[in-house]
Design a protein around this nucleic acid. Structure first.
Lengths: 154, 154, 154, 154
DNA sequence: TTTT
DNA sequence: TTTT
């Protein structure tokens, strides 16, 4: 039975992307994304609740993330839940949940162009929006290439 | 049969909100939201395609929109498709589609606090984020109050 | 600015798909989908509210729809809002909103296999699920091919 | 910063709901939901990939799940990702991810009314659709009551 | 009419 | 452990 497994997130990166260049031109980027919700509890105090998500991006999207995303970047993400399961040293079943990103969009980048360099850690992200546009257009087969197959090198 | 009718948009306002204060404390805000996608056509030229959406917000959300949203504001929107149908002067069946907003979030407002006043049209939106948080917490029954019933004054 | 324009629907078809085979192997299918929400009004009476959506599918998905969907079929749909604008005979600006379907899934088809022929209008939809699986796998580039470009023949 | 944390699933239950009635009228239901995607690998063989999700429902929704959902039931789910973190016996940081359900809809139940009793495990779910409609209408404050506050008894 |  |  075909199902649906969809995740939509808007949040900010807790750190710069961690990118690994693998054999065979494969690239993977891991991001930590925080989504925060605010509400008032029963006594009227404002409370913030932050959930941290482990995102995984591959190849073309990983390269875009490496080039343009930094700690603090706000992004919109679409993806799916994907878990790895294994047994640990004590023989216990373990499970790690990640969000496999299928597409993402940088948000609020109005002030992040070349004239407004982000004070990020490391190199500066310049003109991310037009590049994102190019990226999406240049790699029209990205989503399908990856979606479903998951023939990943580890 | 219960169904699902869900719309998710990220875009920018084409104009300031149009807000009407109605009898019985009812407030309605109408927004024009542009969602733009960019791609390359077959000849490699970058093409932009913009879709304009008519958004409708009520009461608490309409007031927040009135106070903090301006032409150009970038927002994340969740809502549902809602159409009005009628007959025009010639007796033709007409239909107008709107997005009934159930929740929205201002985006990229990291730099829009009191220290970074937006150069919007008209009054300045100050510190929208904390207010949005308060708003959502102060009106915990907003979504349900409105969702489904649609007992609107016109 | 890259935006997001996403629609998610679960509903039932109000009629069999209308399919047109165009020149150049192009195929378009138009579906009418009803999404119904039920709620109780202020006096406690159960009320149903049905919204009708005009769906548009192209090529591979249109063929799947033609072959397997019938009046009454329940489907999950993902797509985007897409409007056509023009001037009518009186010179008035007119706008028609459609949902451009990017992917769909048949639901509740447990009882719709060859042994449980749907009593639909016209031909019988046989074993839709496995075909849907094949379809999605055989046409891995379907989504991207269509998404964004919209180089449609009319 | 207000964020977005949204999950949309369509799948089948791997087992009957596990329901606990807690002190103070609190009820929690835990479901195991399978979402399966099918595709063809590079050699053309059909491959199925199933992801298992741990769902958590509270109070009104938990009661509806207890009454109408069974092993094999197909549902549409909307919720958010919610993780618990703790230290295990060895002092290692552990994390468990669940989907906190905010709303759900039974699918394909057209044939599951009293005249078509599901041959489920245990008691029979009768006429789930109208009940779901009633449920949603009778508990208009359900979503907001729970969403965000998470003042749960453990 | 937005945004880049 | 579901579903097809």
């Amino acid at each position: 039975m075909a199902g649906v497994n969809k995740v939509i997130l808007v949040g900010n990166l807790g750190a710069d992307p961690e990118v690994k260049h693998l054999e065979g031109d494969k690239v993977v980027a891991n991001l930590r994304l925080a989504t925060t919700e605010a509400y008032k509890d029963r006594t009227g105090n404002r409370v913030e609740n932050t959930e941290w998500h482990d995102l995984e991006l591959w190849d073309g999207q990983a390269k875009v993330a490496e080039q343009y995303l930094r700690k603090g970047s706000q992004i919109y993400v679409e993806g799916k839940i994907k878990s790895d399961t294994w047994q640990d040293d004590q023989g216990n079943n373990r499970k790690k949940v990640r969000i496999r990103v299928l597409s993402f969009t940088m948000l609020g980048s109005k002030n992040m162009g070349p004239d407004n360099p982000s004070s990020g850690s490391g190199q500066t992200a310049a003109n991310p929006e037009s590049v994102r546009g190019n990226q999406m257009a240049q790699q029209p087969s990205f989503e399908n290439e990856e979606d479903g197959s998951d023939d990943l090198p580890f």
